[in-house]
Design a protein around this nucleic acid. Structure first.
Lengths: 249, 249
DNA sequence: CAAAAATTTGCAACTGTTTGCAGGAAAATG
DNA sequence: CATTTTCCTGCAAACAGTTGCAAATTTTTG
């Protein structure tokens, strides 16, 4: 790999994720950490990245608005949310999971949209409530404080009574072989129920979560209809999903 | 997580909430408290936060008074809330309605209290969630946007499945003859169910609502065990309630 | 085309940073 | 005033960065 090529790749990664670790770059492109460091140093001198101990941050880092839970990928999530919103039509029943991407979706709903949103996510429901034309159904049960959603058998049984038109899942890990997975048992149960209760399943996934796996499987890839990321659908990362018949936006 | 990244997150949290606790940050981002302290110290040296014992405050803290909702009756509600809190013991199941007085109650809960709170009020639940030892059960159903609580048959049927130790009702109208009344049909149905589902009924009422009547009756005076106002129990306004066997605090 | 020069890369020894931990001091709490 | 919580200090381990150097690669030049 040529030096210029490598630096272009690094720069792309930085802009995509807002940060890079020297250590992971060096295994990714199979050069020594010294080389990566020298590259980052050059890019920093050119003002293209901000060098920090352990890696580098994107220029926009300082301006990036932090959502409530410590992820700094707000802009990517806005992109995802806007694509997702385009799938929602007037009169639809929409089921949504929890997660910051879903909150971004809630904030991006056009004011004229008339639809019914069903969710157990407290922050999402707070956003839905601000919209004049949206009817909100809250799924009740015990509140899981760290994910800020209701979880438990009551929630699951309520979800199973529903047949929604579309379901948006904020996804923490997606893989072409394994499908969607997560690390929270209760969340997994809930999402499984949501998938059963919806005609169309849409996974909202930021690019860094693509081709990653978590301990507990939620569903296979074939259960998903649509995958939305902040990337262009032409991005090679997404090719295998398109090949498996997933609609990619 | 990179150091810079961590500090940016901390800074964001400080600006968002006007304060942070070292202890909660360290579980949130999963580093030792020493690291958090060092970060806060650095941010303080850069003048970005104000370091205090136990955490840090935002720069703007000096200008921001305690978040009042611009309600004149805030202090009266605080008084009521404090009296109400004294009735809650460890291990209790507590049912609460909606309303600003209940939110004040939620904010006044002592941090050591271990109890289970059941409510359909979104703002109240948000407050309960901040408490470390409180288990929160959310009653689900359609959200009524103006009262910010869940209303409807599902909510009522869930409440009827419960037998709580104590029930706190934020009351808009109380009268010695009529009892408690309200002007929102759905809220009335809900409160009726709550009264049926609790061993002890406590009405939280600011003094100006005493001896007033609203169109729809919730229950007679005999259904209430305790009446809490911001007044001294010796106040003559309250005499007739004491005479009818209501505990007045 | 081949030799020289310049650049790039990886390695190794060394230096600097970051982090968590153990203890004792200080502050807050009841 | 005793207990709990938070803070500070020094220290060691893990990690990241620097420097000099030599091998490999590319570019330049005779």
């Amino acid at each position: 790999m040529l030096k210029k090529e490598r630096q272009a790749y690094i720069l792309h990664q930085v802009n995509l994720h807002n940060k890079v670790l020297s250590s992971s770059l060096c295994t990714e492109i199979n050069v020594s950490e010294d080389t990566i460091r020298r590259d980052l140093q050059e890019l920093a001198e050119e003002g293209k990245v901000i060098k920090v101990h352990g890696g580098a941050l994107s220029q926009s880092f300082n301006h990036v608005y932090y959502p409530t839970n410590g992820v700094y990928s707000q802009n990517q999530k806005k992109t995802i949310a806007n694509k997702a919103v385009s799938l929602i039509k007037n009169g639809m029943f929409v089921l949504t999971s929890g997660g910051t991407t879903i909150i971004e979706l809630a904030r991006s709903l056009p004011p004229h949209l008339k639809a019914t949103f069903i969710s157990g996510s407290i922050p999402a429901v707070l956003e839905y409530m601000n919209h004049p034309n949206i009817e909100v159904i809250l799924i009740g049960d015990r509140i899981s404080k760290n994910s800020k959603i209701t979880v438990g058998p009551e929630a699951i049984s309520k979800i199973k009574q529903i047949k929604a038109d579309i379901c948006f899942l904020g996804t923490n890990a997606i893989d072409a072989e394994i499908g969607i997975s997560d690390n929270d048992w209760e969340v997994v149960q809930l999402k499984k129920a949501m998938i059963e209760s919806s005609k169309k399943i849409v996974s909202l996934t930021i690019a860094e979560k693509i081709n990653t796996v978590q301990p507990i499987q939620i569903c296979g890839l074939s259960d998903i209809d649509t995958l939305i990321t902040e990337l262009e659908p032409t991005n090679p990362l997404l090719k295998q999903y398109i090949d498996q018949g997933i609609e990619v936006l």
